[in-house]
Structures are given as C-alpha cells and as structure tokens.
C-alpha cells in the first residue's frame, strides 16, 4: 500500500455543494470500527474527473434527477387493489421520507435485515395490494432515487450493534473474502488500493452513500446490490444476486464503513 500522502495526491481537492445550497460531507475521520484499516473515509465522488464531479454539483446537469422526478411523480399515483398511493400514508415525500435512506439497511419488526427496496415492496404488496417491483426495475430505481434525494446532506446513520450485529459480522466476513480465480476481496481493491489505478479505473474506497448512482457507462441508474454483483463478477467468481442475504449483509457492513459521510442522493459515476 502507498503512503497516505501519495494517495491524497490521487484525489480531487474539491467540495461538493449541490445546487450551491446543500453541502455534502465527502471526507471524514473513519468510524472507530475501522481502526487499523482506514484513517479517513472518502466518497467515490472525490476520485472522479473534473467533468464527472461537476455533473453532481448541479441538479440541472445531473442525469439522475430525471429518474428522481419520475419517482416523485409516482409517489402520489394510486396502484393495486387498495387504490392507495405512497402519499396517502406517508404524506409529502420530503417530510415522510426525510432521513430514511441514511438509516438503510435496517432490521424490520421481525428482525430481518431489509434494504430500501424491501420496505418499498412490502408497502406495495402488503399495504397497496400491488405487484412487487423487481430489484433493478425502472420503477424501483426511480423510487429509490426519489427517496434518496430526501436524505441529501444527512450523515450515514446505520445501526450495527444489538440485533444487527450478526448481519454486520457476516457482511464484514464477505468484505474480506478473496473471491474467484483472481482471489481478490473488496478490501484488495477498495482498502489496500484506493487512489491507485487498475488499468484505466481510478479506485475509490467503494463507499455506497452516493447510491443509487447514475453511471455514464450504462446511461442509467445502478443500485447498490448491482454494483456489488459487478465487482464480485470481475474477480472471475460466481457472484451473488441482488436481494440475496449475502448482499443485504454486505450492504450493512459497507454502509457502516461510510459512517461520517453524507448521503449524496444520486451520485454520478463513470
């Protein structure tokens, strides 16, 4: 691993302030549980080029806002056998969903670890009598983006102790497992080598508080679990599926590595 001075040289000296009125913390001292692993945590935004970073500074330039608007429109559209919309129960999205993204994933009343996608589908199927949305469907992307925007500038706030601890431990184990024929773990790339280049890719710490993100390469929204899937696949491994217990646990653990950083509410990545 390089010295941290060398790593800093590979990162942008820049501040994220969306629309000039919503400052976002993109650098913070690492949480206590990362002692011996990381001293500071950084948003993936800092590792992007000037052009890509600029797109996230202003909602007019951020392509993800088109998806957010579609999600917000859908918020008040009734669906399913109960004829209800999200707004009927949760009120205005900016009030009802403020801060929700920052706490995800978290345990539901039955003690299962749920991501935002699970909570949304629970409301759709059990409260609205509507069809569940696919994890990576367009409707789900639009809604998760719309909800994430409501937590912009709020710090990651996941619970990792108590009943959540076994899930967190499992996620941590996955994070340090060297998968596939290339025998690489998340840590091989995002802890030992952030700031370095793997071919043309500038490695970040692989944080998730910017998610869902708009990826220029896909010209579309990418969910947290879908990003995990791609990274494990790139080790020439059999990956896990979005929505799997493994990715729920990994999401909690990776979210906790970003404690101190703020939710971006729709990042832009290459």
């Amino acid at each position: 691993a390089l010295s941290s001075a060398a790593l800093h040289a590979e990162m942008a000296e820049d501040e994220l302030n969306i629309n000039g009125d919503t400052p976002i913390v993109t650098k913070a001292p690492a949480a206590a549980h990362l002692e011996g692993h990381l001293d500071e945590v950084y948003s993936g935004w800092l590792f992007r080029t000037d052009d890509t970073r600029a797109m996230e500074q202003d909602d007019f330039d951020n392509p993800i806002m088109i998806y957010a608007e579609k999600g917000m429109d859908n918020w008040s559209v009734a669906d399913g056998s109960e004829g209800k919309s999200c707004a009927d129960c949760h009120g205005d999205i900016s009030e009802g969903m403020k801060g929700v993204r920052a706490t995800m994933p978290k345990l539901n009343a039955k003690g299962e670890l749920w991501s935002m996608e699970d909570y949304i589908n629970d409301c759709r199927t059990n409260r609205m009598g509507a069809e569940a949305w696919g994890w990576d469907s367009g409707a789900m992307h639009n809604m998760t983006v719309a909800l994430s925007v409501q937590s912009r500038g709020m710090p990651v706030n996941v619970k990792i102790d108590g009943d959540a601890a076994p899930f967190w431990e499992k996620g941590k184990e996955i994070y340090y497992t060297r998968y596939g024929q290339l025998e690489l773990s998340c840590a091989s790339c995002h802890e030992e080598n952030y700031g370095n280049y793997i071919r043309a890719d500038h490695l970040s710490q692989g944080q998730i508080q910017g998610f869902p993100v708009y990826r220029l390469k896909n010209a579309g929204v990418v969910s947290i679990h879908n990003r995990f899937k791609g990274c494990i696949r790139d080790t020439r491994a059999e990956t896990y599926s979005p929505g799997s217990p493994e990715f729920h646990a990994l999401e909690l653990y990776v979210a906790s590595r970003g404690m101190g950083l703020d939710i971006e509410g729709g990042g832009v990545r290459p």
């Binding site: 497992t177 060297r178 998968y179 596939g180 024929q181 025998e183 899937k229 494990i232 696949r233 790139d234 080790t235 020439r236 491994a237 059999e238 990956t239």
Partner: peptide, 12 residues
C-alpha cells in the same frame, strides 16, 4: 478458489 466463476460471466 472461493466461488470460482465461469470467466467474467458471474455464473458458477
């Protein structure tokens, strides 16, 4: 290997 894949397909 742990969870060896079929090249870069993500499949087993």
């Amino acid at each position: 290997f742990i969870r060896p894949g079929d090249g870069y397909t993500g499949k087993a």
